[in-house]
């Protein structure tokens, strides 16, 4: 199991994908941070650093895709989605071009750069777009696999990545499947549906809860769209209480996707949503921000206890 930021896994996957001459990579002037520079160095003719012009980059990628290329259009999630939502909607999602829109540095986990660099609305943006798959891997290994999987998948996708290093969760025996959640720990008491860096926080939460008599299930939802509704419903029924955990605003992200699936399937169980509480955060280290803005491991642990107690009362 390899530790590392998901953006590092992405850089590694692109290097491996470089053998496929259809794969092209675009960046918007932050290739050292997004790790696309490694691909650029090895495959300079298939690397296009478009400068600080995300809208132009996304549409350029769409043009490349119409000619049979598999473009990975990459920048910080904030600027990429913030600046090119219309371009992703029209030239990528609606046109169904085979573009992989890749946003690194997502969430408040970005830390000290503050709210203009902390993208907390991108899942809401991208989930709302027809035709667009939305993927957020949990660690280095899953990112390598998800990136390669998206290169094979013939369709538009958004890949949401992070800046900070996370502890390795998976080894190479794991097989990422687009559209499938993965049960990391099977329990019976409360199920946590977590995504991205919140999978690591959830694992810590389970440690915090070690002395409680709650048998926690942890499911990694790395494909946020299309959501693995079958697994969500099954685990919610089996555990009888649900916690969702995401580094994103509480509106429009993973939590809402899970709650929609439960409501559509008449699963009436206690639910707790761990997410940024419809506010902008501030500067600080990732862990300080997680604590202050309610998405730390201890918040998840508390949410598990709350959901569990409501289940018992019910």
């Amino acid at each position: 199991m390899k530790d590392g930021a998901t953006r590092d896994g992405y850089g590694e996957a692109l290097l491996q994908l470089g053998e496929n001459s259809s794969v092209v990579v675009l960046d918007a002037g932050v290739s050292d941070s997004t790790r696309t520079n490694k691909f650029g160095k090895k495959y300079p003719s298939r690397f296009f650093n478009m400068g600080i012009s995300e809208a132009d980059m996304v549409c350029t990628a769409a043009g490349l895709a119409t000619a049979g290329k598999i473009p990975f259009a990459t920048s910080f999630a904030c600027f990429l989605l913030g600046r090119s939502m219309d371009q992703v909607l029209v030239s990528v999602a609606y046109s169904k071009t085979n573009v992989k829109v890749v946003g690194t540095h997502s969430g408040i986990a970005v830390g000290e750069d503050g709210p203009t660099a902390q993208m907390i609305v991108d899942l809401a943006y991208t989930r709302a777009m027809p035709n667009l798959a939305v993927v957020q891997p949990a660690d280095w290994e899953e990112t390598v696999q998800a990136t390669k999987c998206l290169a094979e998948y013939a369709g538009p996708a958004y890949l949401r990545l992070g800046r900070s290093s996370v502890k390795g969760i998976y080894d190479s025996s794991y097989k990422f499947k687009l559209g499938k959640g993965h049960v990391l720990r099977q329990g019976t008491g409360v199920v946590i549906f977590a995504s991205g860096i919140m999978v690591q926080e959830s694992l810590k939460a389970i440690e915090i809860l070690a002395n409680e008599k709650i048998d926690v299930t942890l499911v990694n939802i790395s494909t946020i769209k299309p959501l693995d509704k079958e697994l969500v419903v099954e685990q919610a029924r089996r555990n009888g209480a649900v916690v969702t955990a995401e580094d994103h605003n509480r509106i429009g992200g993973l939590g809402d996707a899970v709650l929609e699936a439960l409501a559509e399937n008449q699963v009436h169980v206690p639910t707790q949503k761990i997410a940024v509480n419809d506010t902008f955060a501030e500067t600080g280290t990732p862990q300080e921000l997680f604590k202050k803005y309610g998405i730390s491991a201890s918040h998840i642990a508390q949410a598990v206890k709350t959901a569990h107690s409501r289940k018992i009362k019910a």
Partner: peptide, 8 residues
């Protein structure tokens, strides 16, 4: 931009 992508 799209046209330019095709040109590339």
């Amino acid at each position: 931009s799209v046209g330019h992508g095709i040109a590339l």
